[in-house]
Design a protein around this nucleic acid. Sequence first.
DNA 1: CTGAAAGCGCTTACAG
DNA 2: CTGAAAGCGCTTACAG
Lengths: 332, 332
Amino acid sequence: MDVTIKDIALATGFSTATVSRVLTNKEGYFSKNTAHKVHKVAKELGYKKNMAAMELVTRRSDVIAVIINSTKTNFADSIVAGIQKRASELGNTIIILYTRDRDEVVQRQAIITALERPVAGILLLSVDIAPQNVELLKSSNTPFYFVSIAFRDASLPCISSDDHSVGYMATKYLLDRGHRRIGLAGLDLNNSYTGQLRLDGYRSAMAEKEIVVSDEWIHAGDFSHESGIEAMQAYASQSPLPITAVIAGSDLVAIGLLNQAQKLGITVPEQLSVVSIDGTVLCDYVHPSLTSVTQDFYHMGYVSLGRLLEHDHEMSFTSSRIVERDSVAELR
Amino acid sequence: MDVTIKDIALATGFSTATVSRVLTNKEGYFSKNTAHKVHKVAKELGYKKNMAAMELVTRRSDVIAVIINSTKTNFADSIVAGIQKRASELGNTIIILYTRDRDEVVQRQAIITALERPVAGILLLSVDIAPQNVELLKSSNTPFYFVSIAFRDASLPCISSDDHSVGYMATKYLLDRGHRRIGLAGLDLNNSYTGQLRLDGYRSAMAEKEIVVSDEWIHAGDFSHESGIEAMQAYASQSPLPITAVIAGSDLVAIGLLNQAQKLGITVPEQLSVVSIDGTVLCDYVHPSLTSVTQDFYHMGYVSLGRLLEHDHEMSFTSSRIVERDSVAELR
DNA sequence: CTGAAAGCGCTTACAG
DNA sequence: CTGAAAGCGCTTACAG
C-alpha cells in the first residue's frame, strides 16, 4: 500500500536507480531538472523512505542506541536531553533501552537488542558494565561510548565528571569556610568506582590540612534519598554532632539529610552545613536551597554523541563547579 | 562479516527456510531434533537476527515509537518507566522521539520519523497534536494512542487522568476542611484542554457550596515553577491574603508557591494551605511536604502500551487519589 | 547524467 | 517435516 521508489520511477519515467540517487542526494549523479521532478512526485505521492530496506542494503543507519541504567537517578533526563539535542542537529534517531546495574543478563539483553539493527553507535549511561559484556561490545565493531561513568580500565571510552576533583572541590569549599570535621554521606563505596574517586578526593583535601578523618564521619550508602536519611540518623545519634558540615553523595542524599535534619530539629546551615553533589534543579526547590558541586549533565550528553560518532576513544571529563546557595555557613 | 541464517544453514545442512522457521519458532514446521541442532549452531556462531531484513519482509516490527512533548514536565519519566516495563514484558523495543507543543513542523517530523520504519505502534505523551498531523497519523494505518492528555475530539484514543475529577477532588478536599476562599494557580487556561477541565472541576465543587469565585483567586500560568512564583507574588500583593488555600496546577507550581511564600514570610500551612496536582516524588522532598492529588503515571504508561497493541480505541481514565501530607491546615 | 541488474538477509506460499 | 524460489524496498558498482 505504501508508496515506494518504484512508484516514483513509474510516475516520472526514470529508473529506480535514478530516483534512489536523487532521494539520497548523491551529488553529481543527476541533473537539477531530474531532481526537481522526482522530489515533486515524491511529495505528491506522500513517499516515506522504508528504513528497513535502506538499513538492510547499506548496513548502517542513523539510529543511536542509548542504554540507560534504570537505577534511581534524577539526572539521566538531562543527559538524554543533551543527547537528544545533538541527535536532532545531526539527524540521528534514538532508541532507548533500560538495564540494571550488576545484572549481567539484562545488560547483555539490552546490548544484543541494540546490535540486532545496524545502529550507528551505542551510548551507555551510568552503566557499570560486566566484563563479558565488554567483550560483546568490542567484538561487535559498533562504536560505543560510556557516559557519566568512568572505569579503572582506561581502554573504555567514556565521558564523565572528574569525580576525584568533585570530591576534592566539595571538601576544599568547606575547609575554606572554616570547617574541619566534615562528613561524607551516601556514596556507594563498595561497588562504585565513582564513589571511590570522590572519597579519594575528599581524603586528599583533608590530608592537605593534615586532618585525620574519623571513621564515624563517613556513612556509605547508594546515592539515594534513603541513604541520606540513614546517614543523618547516624550522625544525630551522637550529641553534640560529630561534624559541622557534610558532603552528600548526590542531590537525593542531600535532600534525605535535609529532611531528616528537619525532623530531628537540626537546623541547616546553622548547626550543620550541607554541600550536595550533582546540582540538579532539585537544589533550588528545597529549603534551604542546596549549595552544590554542579555537574554539567546536559553538556555531557550533548558532547558524548559527537565523540561516539567520531570514534573518539579518549576518556574525557566535563567540568563541574561550585554553585553557592543557602545550605553552607561560614565557621568563624 | 556478521553471521546470517545462510551460515547456519551451511553448518547444519538444512535450508535457510528451515533455519528461519526454527528461529522464528513456527510451531509444527520442524522436528525437535532439527530445532536443537539449529539453536546449538546459532549459539556457537554468535548469530544475531538482522532486524532490518526481518522488518523489510514481514513489514512489521516490535518497535514502539514514543513521541514525547519535551515541554518541561517532571512526570514523563514515570510514564516512560511504565511503558518500558510493559514493553520488556511484551518483548517490544522502544524508540523515543521528542517534539514540542504547538510546533506543528517538529511534531510532523517526529511522526514521519516514526513511520519510516514499520513500527508496531505510536504512543504520544502529552502531545497536543495539530489537526493536520492527526490526518497523517490516521492515514498511516499504524495504531496510535495518546497518553496523559485528552481531547475534545472523542475519536482520538487516549488514556489520562480524569482532569475534571482531579480539579473537583482537590477543591472538595479543601472545602471539607473548612476553606471557602480557594485559589487556583499555574494552570494553562489558554491552550490546554487539561487546564480547562481542571478549572471546570474546581468551579463545580465551588458551585455546590454556592461560593462565588472571585477572579483574583485564579492565576493562570503554564504549569511551571515560575508560574507558582508569579501566582504567589500576585496573591501576596494583597494584605491580608485573599485566599486561605490554593490548588497548584502541578507539583512544580506548588513548589514555586512554597518557595515564594517562604521568601515572603507566609507560612504553609498555617497562613496558607496548598494542594498540589500530580503527586510526584517531589512532594515528599520539599518542606512542608505537599498534600496532592496524585496521578498514577506509571500505571498510565504501563496500560497504554497494551491498549495500543490491542487496537483499543476507547478513551479511558486512570485513577487519581488524594495523598495527605503536611501542606494543608484544617480551618475551624 | 542514466539504466539494468545484482544483492542485502530474511520469510513464506508452494510443492513435496 | 523440509527445500527451492520469489520477493520485501532499497543501493550501488558496472556500463554506457
